[in-house]
Design a binder for these strands. Structure first.
Lengths: 168, 168, 168, 168
DNA sequence: CATGAATGAGCCTTCATTCAT
DNA sequence: AATGAATGAAGGCTCATTCAT
């Protein structure tokens, strides 16, 4: 299928990749090269005033939108997650990726707590909750489940904020 | 693979199932026969006093534990979800199952709101949030991610409760 | 297929027939029990005056008509001929059947020659010609070829008659 | 079976043919590429003087002889006819082939009638008769029926000629 | 007589891979 | 750097047959 798509013969592909597994692996690496917490959450310009917006908008950035390339990333991530559920090798890699996002959320929430925007207890579980929700929301959109993604994400974000900071 | 596992030949499996598809379908039906919201959340004995505990414990019931059979359900659910991402037919079925849990959470939160235990705004997004978190938590456990599941779930449950009801 | 059709299970059939081959063989015997030259050509009442009609009508009798049972005979004969082209065993049997019809035609033409109705030279080739035409006509009808069967058969019959006897 | 015969493995056959059906179809096309009326009946050099010989010899050309390739054509035609009795698709193709021969005979007899060599009544049934006889004669030879093929064919040819033209 | 359950052999097909050129 | 041709292994499935009950 791939050979046909790229207009080559199968043996040609074997010239560039030792095996199917290598092709898959390198494809994953290529596809995920820009899938990082910082690519979605713009923490370089983070401030007390744009905090809530950064957190909220970062999540929306992670969800699939019109962008074809981003959609591909999520599509492949979904396939990758499948494989990871079966294959120890892929699992390790997936865990590393998840950990990065988890750390990202934890740091972000930490800063929010310092600024008094985020409730300072249980930062870790809160970070996990955010990560789990945004990850699963992505999957749901990919499967065309019918739910109000933005409302769910806003609700989740709000649930970690101190009362007076909640977005409307 | 299945034939080998059950110590039969392939043709004898075809005596019991017309096709691979039927085998798969009937297996899913069998495996999921007890995978219902009510099997995990004991709402028949629900009261104002055990509300938080019921909600919290119900989630824990959904997570994999020592029980081999429940583990199988989750393992198969995971494979089923994979298929559903590709196959329209399975997707529909998965959506029905998800919807049932979503409705379960919504009803439960509705009752909580009536009793003044749950914040009464945005019940729907809250229900989705709970469903998304518990579903993804399951997946994470299956993949042996290292996180404090109970803490995450407790945090999520707490986030929908009014202040003074929060579990400790 | 057969088991389903007769409302039995396959093993039941094996109680009555040792093998598929025996079932097939006995079915052929049963089906062909009335497929004889005399069943189509009524030579018992043959006379100088009904000779041409007997010959002509006999051929028509061999062709498929509304009669369901006769149709079955031809259908099965057709399958049998197929098998015979491959299988030595069936071939022998088919040759015996063909020979009977050949002899029938030869005797009939012989009588016609005695009565001065049929040209007396080359009786054998004439008999073969008649047999080949009527046999192939049957096959053509079974395959729903579009041709004027009666006209072809009448032409063939006429071609063996002396001038003044020809049917109109 | 084919793979074994040609000393290949089954998958390598699939490199050259997309499916079994394509293999069968292309084989038929290849085998029948020279099976046309004109290949047997040399009507390009047809004249009043060689008419009877052309008709007679053309029929003999259609019958199997020592030629291995021609034998194959008839062998495959026979299998093809079998399939055609069951399969609509092949039937259509067979009918087209038959029609070509029928038309060939009709044209040939038409010319013969113009020249006063062939009896001019019922040209169509006569053409059919010739086609049916030569076709069935082929089949009989393939099945090793014991009959004087040449005599039968000569008799059939003679039966369409006017008296004084008959071959000896 | 009949059936439920099973099986060896085989068929059509796909897939990952190799190898000579 | 690429290709034509091939292959072992396996997958989904059917068929004729058997055997214990």
């Amino acid at each position: 299928m791939i050979a046909k798509k790229v207009g080559m013969t199968k043996p040609s592909i074997y010239y560039h990749f030792a095996s199917k597994e290598e092709l898959v692996n390198r494809t994953y690496t290529h596809i995920f090269r820009a899938h990082h917490f910082n690519s979605y959450f713009h923490i370089d310009a983070l401030s007390k005033h744009n905090y809530v917006e950064t957190l909220y908008q970062g999540g929306l950035n992670m969800l699939p939108d019109g962008n074809q390339e981003h959609f591909s990333v999520l599509r492949v991530l979904s396939e990758f997650t499948m494989l990871a559920e079966r294959d120890e090798l892929y699992r390790e890699r997936l865990i590393r990726m998840q950990q990065e996002f988890l750390n990202g959320f934890r740091d972000l929430l930490g800063k929010g707590a310092d600024w008094g925007i985020v409730l300072s207890q249980n930062i870790d579980p809160k970070a996990h909750m955010l990560a789990l929700v945004i990850d699963n929301l992505s999957r749901c959109i990919m499967m065309k489940f019918d739910l109000d993604y933005e409302a769910v994400w806003k609700e989740t974000v709000n649930s970690v904020l101190v009362q007076e900071e909640k977005a409307k």
